[in-house]
Write a protein that binds this DNA or RNA. Structure first.
Lengths: 191, 191
DNA sequence: ATTTTTATACTGACTGGTCAAACTAATAAT
DNA sequence: ATTATTAGTTTGACCAGTCAGTATAAAAAT
């Protein structure tokens, strides 16, 4: 039960799944990168699916924790949303390949993908709560909180991925500020 | 070079790739669904990659044409953006599985995925032009047009997919209106 | 006549998962 | 102290299935 091995497997899985996506990632490559025999992977995880999910859970938990953390002491709903956008953008820049994996594999019907979605849903739920509170407190316009939460998440994910993929050098801080403004102010000059 | 066969292959490929994603889709199944011998697929397309790309090109061309069409006679940049959101949302609702495929497979590094991205880029370029014109004409606040274009696309894609995947019954028209407002007005009540 | 299609069988590379054997270290028995 | 036992862990060769792509020879279609 060496924690070292577990950590090595986690890092290798993160790397390989991120680089190749679920289907093209192989257990052989993960084992190789983790410097562990293939059998060890299956001793510790029932299947490729399970290894993948354990990775996802750990990563999303951390994302979630970061987001909660960033909002400690923040009161206004708009400010909380701004923080959420910031944390998500920072994570995308820090783990771009993982962010791609996230946006690529959440939409499917397979069991693994549904469970994956369940993890992400926890975060969206959290956003929803913030939105609903904001509406109740008269800070936000009434709207379908589910739709808005998904919109904020999707806008941030796709925008950052597009930047990362297009390989333009960009200022992280500047990007965050603009995304926050799209969402929180109008893009219109007069209205 | 019967057009009938080509159409059958197109439809079958659309269906199978949409349902399974690129990796899990098999040429055998596509051939079966198209009621065509497997050899025919390889006679007409060099490889699975090529078949996939021809499908993508055709689909995105159509999306692009729809968008252009919807904007004929529309003048204000904000109205054009509203139309873009509308067309994209309608297409997501009409071909939900294909929309998933789109958002899942555009981010990769593989040759096929890069070419795929090239197709989508044409559309984003188109959005950019609209945005830049809007800025020049003093209708939109100055911003990085690339970032905004990607944000609009991503917001719309992720929001609609999330609805489709969560299987809540929703009003298409209502959804479109809300997404347009997120983008074009503020979500804030006072500002 | 030439191109296109079909049905079927085949190849060969790849990969998730298995399993019996081997290793390790701690504990119990002598 | 030394040996035996036990339980958990690790190994890597191996298996069975899958699938893109090929081959072929006959039949349709143009």
């Amino acid at each position: 039960m060496s924690d070292q091995k577990e950590e090595a497997i986690f890092l290798a899985a993160l790397e390989v799944f991120s680089a190749k996506g679920f289907d093209r990632a192989t257990m052989d490559e993960i084992a190789l990168k983790a410097e562990v025999a293939k059998g060890t992977l299956f001793y510790r995880y029932k299947s490729k699916d399970e290894l993948f999910l354990s990775l996802i859970r750990r990563a999303i938990d951390r994302f979630f924790a970061d987001a909660r953390n960033a909002m400690a002491g923040v009161d206004h709903a708009a400010d909380k949303i701004a923080k959420a956008i910031q944390v998500q953008t920072e994570l995308s820049f820090q783990y771009p390949e993982f962010a791609k994996l996230l946006l690529s594999d959440v939409w499917g019907k397979l069991n693994r993908q549904q469970q994956f979605r369940g993890c992400l849903e926890l975060y969206l739920q959290f956003l929803r709560t913030i939105i609903e509170e904001g509406i109740l407190r008269g800070e936000l316009k009434p709207t379908d909180s589910t739709l808005l939460a998904a919109s904020i998440f999707g806008m941030t994910a796709a925008a950052t991925l597009h930047l990362l993929v297009s390989e333009k050098r960009v200022e992280l801080a500047e990007t965050i500020k603009e995304l926050q403004q799209y969402c929180l102010n109008s893009i219109l000059l007069h209205h």
